[in-house]
């Protein structure tokens, strides 16, 4: 029974079905802004629920070599990772920050493996860019998570959310020394950059429904393409929700507080989409300089400040 319940969590709520629905709404919001605001977005295949169902039933064009296996496994891994992450955030499954980080790494690394193993030359050319993007979010986020764990004295997502429910959101909580409080404020931009990048949004995300030549989606078709699109869509709601859970969480013991949570997540979605609309997609070196340079430095400064603050 426990096994079946966990499968339900992963498949329906707060797993796949829930994040796909939320992500589709977020993507609808993104598409509702005229294309003049965000460049090439008018040129991508229809990705509504109806289109996804049509793709699921459609023909899958075979790819050669190892890539054929990855074409089926990769998108499923992405969806599974995001669903599991959501179960951890909602407290339906236990998991520490290490598992949480590993799942995000799995989600992001699939793109890299696709680039490596692709038979298409233009897709393989994206290897460095994709690798830079993975390093770009992984380095600052690992430091940010360490700092959060140090301040809240907890290595589990539920512990971090519980701490914020007790003492107030991390960025405004008066608990701890002044340095810890400054550190928490400093780590917010770094976290924002990481989750924007993970969601694939501009300026530092490598891809989100761009479908330009050389995009990994050009290697997929049929059901794997549907799963890939579903995972990218789901990331649009998962990443803002994690961002809120890490920095602006609060209690959710009654309906009013749940509604407040929903509003906070909606605000994070709108903020991320606004940054996406206002930015151009950054080139590889800029991703590295900004993510590892600015993001990493901010995260490191936040870590040191939190360390000093918690120690005093």
């Amino acid at each position: 029974m426990t096994f079946a319940t966990k499968l339900f969590y992963l498949a329906v709520f707060p797993g796949f079905f829930f994040i796909l629905t939320g992500g589709t709404l977020a993507r609808g919001l993104r598409q509702s802004v005229p294309a003049g605001g965000h460049g090439h977005d008018s040129a991508f295949p229809a990705l509504s629920m109806r289109a996804l169902l049509r793709l699921l039933a459609g023909e899958t064009i075979a790819a050669g070599g190892q890539f054929h296996a990855l074409m089926w496994i990769g998108p499923a891994v992405k969806i599974f990772s995001l669903s599991w992450v959501m179960c951890i955030v909602f407290g339906f499954m236990s998991g520490d920050l290490f598992l949480f980080f590993t799942l995000l790494l799995m989600f992001s690394s699939v793109d890299l493996f696709v680039c490596w193993l692709s038979g298409g030359g233009r897709v393989r050319q994206q290897c460095w860019r994709t690798a830079t993007a993975v390093i770009g979010w992984a380095v600052p986020l690992s430091i940010v998570l360490s700092a959060i764990a140090m301040r809240t004295d907890s290595v589990s997502m539920q512990g971090i959310i519980g701490w914020q429910a007790a003492y107030g959101p991390l960025v405004v909580s008066t608990e701890g020394g002044i340095f810890a409080r400054i550190g928490s404020i400093v780590m917010v931009p770094a976290g924002f950059l990481c989750f924007t990048s993970l969601a694939g949004l501009k300026p530092f995300g490598t891809r989100l429904f761009t479908f330009q030549p050389g995009d990994i989606a050009s290697e997929f078709s049929g059901a794997p393409l549907a799963m890939l699109c579903a995972s990218q869509t789901s990331a649009l709601i998962v990443m803002p929700l994690i961002f809120i859970a890490l920095f602006f969480a609060g209690p959710a013991s009654n309906w009013l507080e749940v509604v407040f949570w929903v509003l906070k997540v909606a605000g994070a979605v709108i903020l991320m989409l606004s940054v996406d609309f206002m930015s151009a997609r950054a080139e590889r070196l800029k991703i590295f300089y900004w993510m590892v340079g600015f993001g990493g430095t901010s995260a490191l400064a936040a870590f040191i400040l939190t360390w000093i603050g918690v120690g005093t």
Binding site: L25, S32, A46, A51
Partner: peptide, 14 residues
């Protein structure tokens, strides 16, 4: 475009 059309919009892909 209506954001809710993302649920059931269908397009011919050319």
């Amino acid at each position: 475009m209506n954001p809710l059309s993302a649920f059931w919009r269908n397009e011919t892909v050319v």
